[in-house]
Write a protein that binds this DNA or RNA. Structure first.
Length: 403
DNA sequence: CGAGATTCATGTGAAGTATACCTTTAGGCTTAA
DNA sequence: AAGCCTAAAGGTATACTTCACATGAATCTCGTA
């Protein structure tokens, strides 16, 4: 492409009028002033955490709700206010927020505590130290003075599924170790049934208070969208029917408001790209597809090589038969690919675990079935939208170094 | 014909191994008095 | 003699392997009606 041409593109971009005024207000980073339909929860959480301000340890709190029901947002909102107020009243209070699902950040006991330590300014190595040592570092870092610490663990269910409930047990016992600081834990979980399989001791001490976030219904989502759209978009860029359509799409599966906002944002971006001043319905459909597409790509790109190859093997099997396939099938074709690209093959045991992980990520849909006389295995289907399959294969092929 | 045993292919848990990385410690070298 | 650097020793977490046992319905077997 020629340089003058490039310049034109940039010029063009700058001069072009956008449907957005403030795009940030549609992203997850944005904390709106007003959170509609969540007053009950906000007040509830505030009441639980309020004792912080008198340096009394509040009850541990546990929050359940599906994705996009505003859990994280509400908690962050309340915590911000709490911190702001504590600053004004000079109460030593600190809120630590950790998202446990982040791969390689906080998905094991060690890494979680290391992350907590980092949040309070103690840098610790990624490996090599005993876990107790990490605990000690973290404890002594917060126990330097009398203060209140609120630890928010987002998506704890992931952590517990991967690393067991020891972490939680240790954390709930923190207060006995500390002399000056007080710690309170707020756990956020997407999985409502998740406490079923944690130790009753942990359960009783963690669940001092609990709260459920019900899904939004279509009307509520529409409210939320209109509210945000007012901030985000130029006058008249989004009609009420568009918001309604987004809401309907998002409400279709469990009232996910985040999804609705994504939909609106991406639709806006697409409209901008076409230099249209208005978002019409067709953009919503494109946006739905694009989001799906982008999300899976983002996930796949950051997968370790071996997982990528397992996924690729799955895709190949899927395209050849488009019927569900079994662990054994996948393993043998995976094995062939390994020698083809010069990768040391993993054992079937490990591949089985990787299939499980891909299932958790939603890239596969796997369930264990028994075929009676013909054994027991996982029945695997590819859980990726058809429209992304071809491009995904290309991506994997180049990333894995196929010719 | 039906209850119980058998079978298959792999799930799954536990224990062991390799690797990468950490801290501690001891020895050797340098330096300043 | 004190201070500093380096390399070895001893320790850990993590990803993976090895081993061994668990699973569960289709199929087989065999006693019984």
């Amino acid at each position: 492409m020629q340089q003058s041409n490039l310049e034109n593109i940039f010029e063009d971009f700058l001069n072009r009028s956008s449907v957005f005024i403030n795009k940030d207000s549609l992203t997850i980073r944005y904390t709106p002033d007003n959170i509609p339909h969540r007053d009950l929860q906000i007040n509830g959480i505030a009441k639980v955490l309020a004792p912080c301000l008198r340096l009394e340890r509040p009850s541990n709190l546990f929050i359940y709700g599906k994705t996009g029901t505003g859990k994280t947002l509400v908690v962050q909102r309340v915590c911000h206010q709490l911190e702001a107020l504590s600053l004004k009243k000079t109460v030593p209070l600190k809120v630590i927020y950790v998202n446990c699902k982040m791969r390689r950040v906080a998905d094991t006991e060690y890494r979680l505590i290391a992350q907590l330590a980092k949040e309070v300014g103690q840098d610790v190595p990624a490996t090599g130290l005993p876990t107790d040592e990490i605990y000690k570092v973290f404890f002594s870092a917060i126990d330097v003075k009398e203060q209140m610490i609120v630890i928010v663990l987002d998506e704890v269910d992931r952590l517990v599924k991967k690393a067991g409930d020891d972490v939680l047990y240790n954390l709930t016992r923190v207060n006995q170790e500390l002399k000056k600081a007080r710690v309170s834990i707020v756990g956020i979980s997407n999985d409502v049934t998740f406490t079923d399989d944690i130790d009753p001791r942990v359960k009783s001490s963690l669940n001092e208070e609990e709260m459920v976030f019900p899904p939004y219904d279509a009307l509520q989502i529409k409210d939320i969208l209109l509210e945000r759209a007012k901030i985000a978009f130029a006058e008249g860029a989004v009609g009420e029917t568009i918001a309604g359509k987004c809401a309907a799409y998002a409400a279709r599966d469990h009232g996910d408001a985040r999804r609705a906002l994504d939909l609106l944002r991406v639709a806006g971006e697409l409209a901008d790209r076409d230099a249209k001043g208005v978002i019409d319905e067709s953009y919503i459909d494109f946006a739905e597809e694009k989001i799906e597409h982008d999300n899976t790509f983002e996930v796949v790109k950051h997968l370790p090589t071996q997982s990528q190859l397992v996924l690729y093997s799955g895709l190949v099997l899927d395209s050849s038969g488009s019927k569900p396939f079994f662990t054994g099938d996948l393993f043998s074709i995976y094995y062939d690919f390994c020698s083809k690209i010069g990768l040391k093959p993993l054992t079937q045991r490990r591949v089985s675990d990787l299939i499980g992980e891909l299932d958790m990520l939603g890239l596969f849909n796997a369930k264990v079935i028994s075929k009676g006389r013909y054994g027991r295995t996982r029945e695997v289907k590819v859980g990726i939208h058809v429209s992304s399959l071809a491009k995904l294969r290309d991506l994997l092929e180049s990333s894995l170094g196929f010719q």
